[in-house]
Computed example of a mutant assay.
Amino acid sequence: MPKMKSNSGAKKRFKVTGSGKIKRKKAYKRHILTKKSPKRKNNLGKDALVHKADESSVKDLLPYGGK
């Protein structure tokens, strides 16, 4: 059986933690930063976890990292 292909976009956007949860980056920190408060920008820089309802969809895109 040939190897399964991971989704290239998902490979770049998600990382799997040791416990099997999926980490993601937050949106809205690329531009128009002058009107955002320092506290908000700091929190946007931190990683977040993919919601449990969306986890299975992301794991399907990462056959070797997500299972």
Rank of each mutant, 00 (worst) to 15 (best):
F14S: 04
G66L: 12
K59Q: 00
K41V: 14
P38C: 05
K11M: 01
H31W: 11
Y64N: 00
K26I: 12
R13K: 15
K25P: 04
R40H: 04
S6P: 00
S8C: 10
V16D: 00
V16F: 02
K52S: 15
L49E: 12
K36E: 11
G65M: 13
K25S: 07
S6M: 04
P63E: 07
L62R: 00
R40K: 08
H51A: 10
K12V: 02
K26H: 12
M1F: 02
H31F: 03
K23I: 10
S37I: 12
L61S: 08
G20M: 08
S6E: 01
T34F: 05
Y64E: 11
L49C: 09
S8W: 00
T17N: 09
S6Y: 01
I22W: 01
K26G: 10
K3G: 00
K12S: 08
K11Q: 10
V58W: 01
R30M: 09
A27R: 07
K36M: 13
T34G: 11
G66E: 11
G9N: 00
L61P: 09
P2K: 12
A48Q: 15
E55Q: 15
G65S: 07
S57V: 10
R24E: 06
K52R: 13
S8P: 14
G45D: 04
S8H: 11
I22S: 00
D60W: 11
A10N: 08
A10V: 13
